[in-house]
Design a protein around this nucleic acid. Structure first.
Length: 165
DNA sequence: AACAGGATGCAA
DNA sequence: TGCATCCTGTTT
């Protein structure tokens, strides 16, 4: 069963936590989500902080849509939009465990996008209605840890990172 | 093990 | 100008 819009329309923290253990499917490749971070428009490390821009506009759109951005000249990072339309929030996928069709390291937001072949063309895709880009609900049991987010300077103290042990 | 710096494009 | 990164080399 695939995750639907209702799943993504909840609070970003809840969605982030609940994405752990689910299966990310992209063009036949599969990985189990092991690490995520939450970002909301109320907090200054978020790309949507300070309003709508060409880059951040998909974050203000409907939940359950991909937000892919380019960073540091050579990497892409994958997010999924959360909460109700009009709120600029998303969950960053930071790590997956390979299940099928993935080559190379998938630990780290830049590396996992490289392994999946995800880039700017995948920005703004509705993963609740796509046939080759979606998340499958696997009700797995596991322990997870909640920690501070990685690699940011602003709002660095918020414990909005979730990692499977 | 910890740190420094380079590669590199683009949002703001 | 600085970044929601990663890799490689150099110093403890």
């Amino acid at each position: 069963m695939r995750l639907n819009r209702e799943f993504f329309s909840r609070s970003t923290l809840e969605v982030a936590k609940d994405l752990l253990g689910k299966e990310l499917v992209y063009k036949g490749k599969r990985g189990r989500i092991t690490e995520v971070e939450a970002y909301t428009m109320d907090e200054e490390s978020c790309h949507a902080f300070g309003g709508v821009t060409p880059r951040s506009k998909v974050m203000y759109g409907p939940p359950g849509v991909s937000y892919v951005y380019f960073i540091y000249g050579m990497y892409h990072c994958l997010n999924f939009v959360t909460e109700e339309e009009g709120r600029g929030c998303a969950v960053l996928i930071r790590g997956v465990e390979p299940i099928e069709g993935l080559k190379g390291n998938t630990d780290g937001p830049g590396k996992l996008c490289r392994a999946f072949g995800i880039d700017k063309k995948d920005n703004g895709i509705d993963i609740c209605s796509s046939d080759d880009f979606y998340i499958e609900d696997k009700r797995m049991q596991f322990e997870y840890q909640q920690t501070k987010r990685i690699g940011i300077k602003k709002a660095a103290d918020l414990p909005w990172r979730f990692v499977v042990q």
